[in-house]
Design a protein around this nucleic acid. Structure first.
Lengths: 272, 272
DNA sequence: CGGAATGTTGATATGCCTCAACTAAAGTGG
DNA sequence: CCACTTTAGTTGAGGCATATCAACATTCCG
């Protein structure tokens, strides 16, 4: 439980961070773009989709949008007629606490749907912003609804996507409630690395992780200074390195042990 | 971040707590039972259901089961072919941390579906147990699937139910990460009281809350002793009383202020 | 009535927060 | 391309909220 007052610089979003509606400048993707591969890869990791399902999903059309670091995609309390899929970079979901502090709830990488729940919920209970530069594709809800209606399995895959999301939130609760600072950070890294690996976003032992130490603190309920010191401790174990937007896992087994990490909750077990 | 070691008595479930499969002794409810009212009331709080939807939902048949205090309904890692709806009492979802400690993720009251996600997820990432005596009704997944297939709106209502669940988990994350002990407990009580009120489970200013101080600690990442002291502090403000399984809110506004509580995330806004 | 579970209190320890200054790196404009 | 500004990271000192330990009191329940 770190500070309960307005945060020092870096913990509150940068001043330029404001949500804006889609504009003419945003690119409309031509048909059959690479984003369908990204989107399908993710869904197939947990849901069986046959050719017909896949074909239907590939009919989804959206407008891509590039987000500057820290830029908000949607604010807490807003409504939306679209949901987004991350194509590049990373976005984060967060609550703004009374007092202005920010509490990050989760981070999302290529293939993730950070606001799929807006399909059925009227109001955003949290905001979504870019962590580092990010590219997303915005898909209209009526399009998504249409393909869910046509094929049960497609609707199931999306429902399942939101359910795994919830499992990740649950794990965040017990991570914060049950682990001391070092293990908490280790678990955070384990999960992100594992998910990145599944999404094909790990290059050798390294993944892009465009977060600063203050943001990691805001995600885990720790003060920036504590994160700094624990990162040094983790570095010393030779399990990881984390610098300038990159996370390198040198010793996965060791890290997983420190984190007491068990990936079952990500539901990526045996999927043919 | 309280203890990271095997918990003292009371934080680990009682020894008799074991999941068991449904048995002959369990009652099979005759048609048109009161549990449909409970179930419908909850769904209607967030989803529009017309007469046809309602009629369809009333065709659901299930086996009721009574749970002793602390008894597990389902364990972490298990699979299930049914989901349950709480009819009476309260159940909790929890993770078992390495070392045996328990981290409660949420608590559920009449009308809630504490394991609806098992409809689409193969493995339970958490366990569900009774807090105090509880009665649930177990409904087979194939029945639930069948009515979702028949009416889009019914499927949507259930999907939405799981999405609100996720919003509650998100709030738990920022509650733990962003509030000190007293406010954290206040927020916990606010949410439960608000939900109980919406479910018609508040009698005057009092609701049943069959939790002990250790369990509240395990839900909020606090030590039992801290919970005890903060409860005393909250009692002194005259906002609440909490004793022997009952929570009484004497001054809601004051409590909500201490908790910085904003119920938007429960999505119960304007629903005619 | 007796034992177990739950709640209460006091004393002490410590992990993490806070404050504050400084260094290093990255981005910006002349 | 270098001076300047801004952002991010690092280090040290000190304090406090909360954990821990250990009794004891109370309530519950068979």
């Amino acid at each position: 439980m770190p500070l309960l007052r307005p945060a020092p610089s870096g913990n509150v979003g940068p001043p330029h961070a404001r949500a804006r509606p889609a504009q003419a400048g945003d690119k409309i993707h031509p048909s059959m773009d690479a984003y369908h591969d990204i989107l399908l890869r993710k869904l197939k990791a947990h849901s069986p989709l046959d050719n017909a399902d896949e074909k239907l999903l590939r009919t989804l059309r959206g407008r891509t949008r590039e987000l500057a670091p820290g830029e908000d995609l949607i604010h807490q309390g807003e409504q939306s007629r679209m949901s987004s899929v991350v194509l590049e970079g990373m976005v984060g979901r967060y609550h703004t606490l009374p007092g202005g502090r920010r509490s990050y709830l989760s981070f999302h990488m290529a293939g993730d749907w950070p606001d799929l729940q807006s399909l059925l919920l009227d109001q955003m209970d949290h905001a979504v912003c870019a962590a580092g530069k990010a590219t997303i594709v915005l898909i209209r809800h009526d399009q998504i609804r249409a393909i869910c209606d046509r094929r049960q399995t497609v609707g199931d895959a999306l429902w399942r996507e939101t359910l795994i999301d919830a499992a990740i939130f649950r794990r965040a609760i017990s991570n914060q409630g049950g682990r001391a600072a070092r293990g908490r950070i280790a678990h955070f890294f384990c999960e992100l690395f594992f998910r990145a690996q599944a999404a094909g976003l790990v290059d050798g032992q390294t993944m892009a992780l465009p977060l600063n130490q203050g943001q990691i603190g805001d995600a885990l309920g720790l003060a920036l200074v504590t994160v700094n010191r624990m990162l040094q401790a983790l570095r010393k174990t030779r399990a990881i390195e984390f610098r300038v937007g990159k996370l390198t896992v040198r010793d996965w087994n060791h890290l997983a042990k420190l984190a007491e990490f068990d990936p079952d909750y990500l539901q990526m077990a045996a999927r043919p």
